[in-house]
Design a binder for these strands. Structure first.
Lengths: 290, 290
DNA sequence: GATTTTATCTGACTTAAGTCAGATAAATGA
DNA sequence: TCATTTATCTGACTTAAGTCAGATAAAATC
């Protein structure tokens, strides 16, 4: 245990001395950290002065002075908010956007350098995802999204890869019954993503039709997020959505090569039923009445 | 690729906002960061003012003032170095040691909190080891050590666990011919550890006897360090040590369940020979003439 | 319409951190 | 031994960051 603590502290030393230089990649363009942080916040889409102030945790006097500084440098313009002229809105000038882009480039270059000098970049990325997800585990949010959006496709691709690895026969999505995207969009169904600070880490689809019966599809949680009860959260949200769409009965199919999935279904009120489709991959079928 | 960069930057945000608070655990005891860093450096065993200054990257004027501050707080005493009285040596007073211990406790508590709130602490630790090792990959050092020291035992334990996982029959070290520690210490042999910032991440033993033939034992590299060519480095260092001990012939045994090991041996001048012992685990035997 | 609340700004501060040109004293080398 | 080098210190600066008490003006509330 003491040993474990030492390992964490070693990690902290490593990231604060090496990465510390990374997130303060702001530095190196001759601007003080404070105004660089404000410039970046505006570049990333924050507009209202109060929102930026809260986000960066700045005193209102300091914030005001930093804005005046950036303004006199010609990096930003400010003006009253159209719907409440007590509030002010900040926007980048062309010059400001150029400076912001330069910060982005520096930050991206440093990230690229980490990957480039390691023989197993995928392992680095997976480890980083795990740690970032763990540190932000209380801020994981579930959002509804079109399954054709890139974030959703990211999860689906990972899901297919995992089935490919875990099924003894491999997995070819073309041989399976790939649901129509429109069946997983309101009003017929929904597609839900679990997001951890802009990274999609899990998904589930509710594939509805015209009647009161719908299917749960594509339940997946990233290895980085396993153990956090995210699958249960996703399923609960999918069931809530189903109820609101007037659905009374849910079905799903799965494979005995994914025992943790079947265990979850049994624990949350699903009961095993007979095969209800001719998809070649599943060998277990469940139903739940809402 | 762009996606990967975003994942690294997300990691950076996560560690600088959450862990950032962790390594600046210095804060919170009402002392400015600068003097807290100096106090911690002294607590961790640095004594000479010049060494501390270089380690922390401080200006000599600033360093001097920080020392005077800590001195007037009663945290440290300074005096001339016995062998060169231009140099000064700093030491903690009882009060200073108490403050240092308090910093250590805070830092340990925060590390413990990260483990406590995650369902899979081992996964967190493995991920942290991987990242810290990757960031410090240019500073990995190979040291000679007594195989009965805790750092060596850490590696050996991990090694046995890995064999247990990978051998179809499992692995019980008591059934194997566990070499005597004294056979892996000079003048009969050596035991080498690869260290990454105080964490042992690999080992190899050279088990010698009275004659010019010795055996390579316990070659292991942590999953956190794989791909970095560390096994090759360890083997090269072991062969160098063997030559200096007057050994002309090296032997080793291994198991075909560890194909990457056999591949390494073949690539580095070893040739397969007949079984030379009756250990129940190995099924491949190699020899190399130095 | 008067009063209170809210969002931002200004001015007058403090503290931390860092820079730099000498000053001082001990050690080193010709 | 004397000039030079080295290690540290002192004093006089600068910059960044942050605090806090009002000031100002718009919006919300009574």
């Amino acid at each position: 245990m003491t040993d474990d603590i030492q390992r964490i502290r070693r990690f902290n030393r490593a990231v604060t001395s090496e990465v510390g230089a990374l997130d303060t990649s702001f530095l190196g363009l001759g601007r003080p950290l404070g105004s660089a942080r404000v410039l970046n916040a505006i570049g990333h889409g924050l507009q209202e002065v109060g929102v930026i102030r809260d986000y960066l945790g700045l005193d209102s006097g300091l914030m005001s002075r930093l804005l005046r500084g950036l303004e006199s440098e010609g990096m930003i313009t400010t003006g009253p908010s159209p719907d409440d002229s007590r509030r002010r809105i900040a926007q980048l000038t062309d010059e400001g956007r150029a400076a912001f882009t330069e910060y982005e480039r520096l930050s991206n270059d440093q990230a690229r350098a980490i990957l480039a000098r390691h023989p197993r970049p995928q392992a680095i990325l997976d480890a980083m995802d795990l740690i970032a997800t763990a540190l932000g585990q209380d801020r994981i949010e579930i959002i509804e999204i079109d399954p054709r959006e890139p974030e959703a496709i990211h999860c689906l691709t990972q899901y297919y890869r995992e089935l490919e690895r875990r099924f003894a026969t491999g997995f070819d999505v073309n041989l399976s019954r790939d649901p129509e995207a429109t069946d997983m969009i309101r009003p017929r169904g929904v597609f839900l993503l679990a997001m951890s600070d802009a990274l999609p880490i899990g998904c589930v689809g509710l594939k509805g039709g015209d009647g009161p019966v719908a299917e749960i599809k594509r339940l997946w949680v990233s290895p980085a997020a396993r153990g956090l009860k995210l699958a249960t959260r996703l399923m609960t949200r999918a069931e809530d959505a189903a109820r609101r769409l007037g659905i009374h009965t849910l079905r799903l199919d799965t494979n005995s090569a994914l025992p943790e999935a079947a265990a979850l279904y049994r624990k949350t009120g699903w009961r095993e039923i007979d095969r209800f489709n001719d998809d070649p991959y599943p060998d277990m079928f469940f139903e739940k009445t809402l």
